[in-house]
């Protein structure tokens, strides 16, 4: 899933010489990393008048030239008109700490929250973070918070390429690469929780049955939508789209496949008995546990 408006990333496989680590082609960002970048931005901008905050990205490099950004931590830096300083001692100390907690995650690049790339971006990239990730190229992720300027909020990822006849630190081209938000099923439910937050707070007392009910309601709503569409097509209000029709036919066909009715019935009954039995046993165990804990108090 892309983050941010109209990605202008180039999907190119650059010819790579053998022996040299190939360039990352794709960046995925974990929600936890994104949220901690935003948190850092909220906390960091008030101090010292820094317009942007920068920090280190931790993650894993996959075999298929994909960089998974799993985590991030803040870096200390100060910039003036003349110079930019990044506290690398601090950076290394923190990196050591993060390594202890999760040894698999290594430095893959850095982030900044400025909306544009400038000379300092190139300097920081070439001088501070490229050596950290060598021999792999460092990636640079720009998080536009949509606060400073009129720019739209979004996340962009870049890799750098040297530019000019004689390579110099402040000269490099940032090449955009595709960047996506990535999460598993478990994280999906957590994100749903976060995006469902109303008025800045919500109670999380939902049981599994609640979640099931919600999914069923979602499906019913979807079926209603499809039904409304089909009706409007058959009544001639809207012109039918063949592609949608085919998709509908496919999904209807697939959903009808299943065991024969008789065997289904016997399967269902035997399974239902199992389920009810397990449920009964667990209930029994619970009441026994309750009785036992009360008896302990009596002795």
């Amino acid at each position: 899933m892309a983050i941010g408006p109209n990605p202008s990333a180039i999907y190119l496989q650059s010819p790579s010489a053998s022996g040299v680590p190939s360039r990352p082609l794709n960046v995925t960002i974990h929600p936890a990393a994104l949220l901690s970048i935003l948190d850092h931005y909220l906390r960091g901008t008030t101090e010292g008048g820094n317009q942007r905050v920068i920090g280190t990205l931790l993650g894993i490099r996959n075999d298929n030239n994909e960089v998974e950004v799993r985590n991030s931590f803040a870096a200390l830096h100060s910039e003036t008109e003349e110079q930019i300083v990044v506290d690398m001692d601090y950076h290394r100390n923190v990196y050591d700490l993060y390594q202890k907690a999760n040894p698999r995650e290594v430095i893959v690049g850095w982030y900044s929250t400025s909306s544009e790339l400038d000379n300092y971006s190139a300097l920081v990239h070439q001088n501070f973070f490229s050596p950290e990730t060598a021999p792999n190229p460092a990636i640079h992720v720009v998080v536009n918070t949509g606060v400073q300027k009129a720019g739209e909020l979004g996340v962009k990822a870049y890799i750098s390429a040297p530019i000019g006849v004689t390579p110099r630190a402040e000269n490099c081209a940032f090449i955009p690469i595709p960047c996506e938000l990535k999460f598993g099923d478990a994280e999906r439910s957590g994100l749903d929780l976060l995006s469902a937050v109303q008025n800045n707070q919500a109670l999380t007392a939902s049981t599994e049955l609640d979640v099931l009910e919600k999914s069923l309601k979602d499906i019913i709503a979807m079926i209603d939508r499809v039904l409304a569409y089909v009706r409007s097509v058959t009544s001639g209000e809207t012109a039918g789209d063949e592609r949608i029709g085919r998709k509908l036919l496919d999904s209807l066909n697939s959903s009808l496949e299943g065991p024969e009715k008789d065997s289904m019935e016997s399967l269902f009954n035997s399974h239902l008995q199992d389920t009810l039995m397990v449920s009964y046993i667990s209930n029994l165990v619970r009441s026994q546990a309750e009785i036992s804990s009360r008896l302990v108090l009596l002795t």
Binding site: L194, V197, T204
Partner: peptide
Amino acid sequence: QVRTSPLA
């Protein structure tokens, strides 16, 4: 309860 920063 869950809260997220307005930005997030």
